[in-house]
Amino acid sequence: MQLSNRSKKVSNKKMTFAEKIYLPAIAGGLSITLKHFFRKNTATIKYPEQQRPMSQVFRGLHILKRDEEGRERCTACGLCALACPAEAITMVAEERKKGEEHLYREEKYASTYEVNMLRCIFCGLCEEACPKEAIFLQNNVMAPAFFERDQVIYGKDKLVEPVKKV
């Protein structure tokens, strides 16, 4: 059936005599595979020792960033939890007390912040939603394998960026 004038018939099922006797095809196929046999194979990466360079925008494991003075940026606004299509993020907000100004940037902060890595689909929507430059997906770290279920719920101890030593 012709619907447009762009169609082009592509399959030809009639075999020529040379194709029917099959021997040339064997030789042709073998020559191709033999060529690969002697070609230097560059496709394999010996993974744990050798790692391929990841893209700058790769969506890997989450990190909660600190600002220039080492204070936590997150203000527990909950936008990342709202944007999460997998409902992986939970948090509890708390008010900053006197004397904690060096720990938290704003008056409100997340006392607990958990990402369930079993639910997380690494879509990057939390990173996009964050209005405080706090949560990012790192391009060079992946969520590691785990042995116990409770190891998979990442709390602030695993997520917050470690304090830079001067």
């Binding site: 447009s4 762009r6 169609s7 082009k8 018939k9 592509v10 399959s11 099922k13």
Partner: peptide, 20 residues
């Protein structure tokens, strides 16, 4: 671009159409 079509809708036709 062109729209490749096959003859009788068998597996070989589908293979050829996808290649094209």
């Amino acid at each position: 671009f062109e729209v490749p079509i096959g003859e009788s809708g068998d597996t070989y036709d589908r293979y050829c159409v996808r290649n094209e």
